[in-house]
Amino acid sequence: MIEVNDIHKSFGDAKILKGISTTFEKGKTNLVIGQSGSGKTVFLKTLLGLYTPDQGSIIYDGTDYSDLSTDEKSNLRSKMGMVFQGSALFDSMSIAENVKFPLRMFTKQSKSEMNDRVDLVLKRVNLGDAHNKLPSEASGGMQKRVAIARAIVNQPKYLFCDEPNSGLDPKTATVIDNLIQEITHEYDITTIINTHDMNSVMEIGQKIIFLKDGFKEWEGSNKNIFKTDNEAVTDFVYSSDLFKRVQKMYLEEDQ
């Protein structure tokens, strides 16, 4: 579980995060949504420790990140998995080497143990036969799945995903969403996903936080996002006619 208490973050005069507090629960897919420029990526990078908050605290399973020494912070980070928007795979390594990388860095496993673990994880993301390909030879969807495999190979306690299905076709995007949700339940990890994809919100949004201009504007689940009358949320969610119709159908079914 991750508790976020009143975090603020500025870059020069630009205040990006203006006092966000929330809790991300274990075993759930927690979504952070909002328009471009709402502070989602800065929020996620602050949770990851890539940015230091100007004010407030982030508590990982009872441990305040700001109380940790540099080495303790590094140890905590080794328990985090991250799926970057652009996958961020290492160009010079094959897919298998990319996935094996955290094991080589942080474990004392033998080569065969590492290879077995890589095989298992690659099969889990349906890439059992792509070991020797380079990232440049893989499609966008494959790269995302490799990034997920790399993020979970060392059995992390926390999984962060920054717009994991951006740039993917709807079918592949759904596959990625479902994969993240299954892995979250299977490994019982705390998963936080940054997205502005409404399909993800509807499909896997067990907990949703809506950010606007650096503030937390709304918090709820995919069940009650249809019922909210928060104007900022409805403006964002129902910007397309399709979702207006989805809401109408949902509310009719609910009655």
Binding site: K45, L50, K73, R77, S78, M80, M82, Q85, A88, D91
Partner: peptide, 18 residues
């Protein structure tokens, strides 16, 4: 620089690597 642009350096830092 390319590793920085493509977030590969961020990926290293997130993993707790110097």
């Amino acid at each position: 620089g390319t590793m920085r642009v493509t977030e590969q350096i961020d990926a290293l830092e997130v993993m707790g690597i110097n």
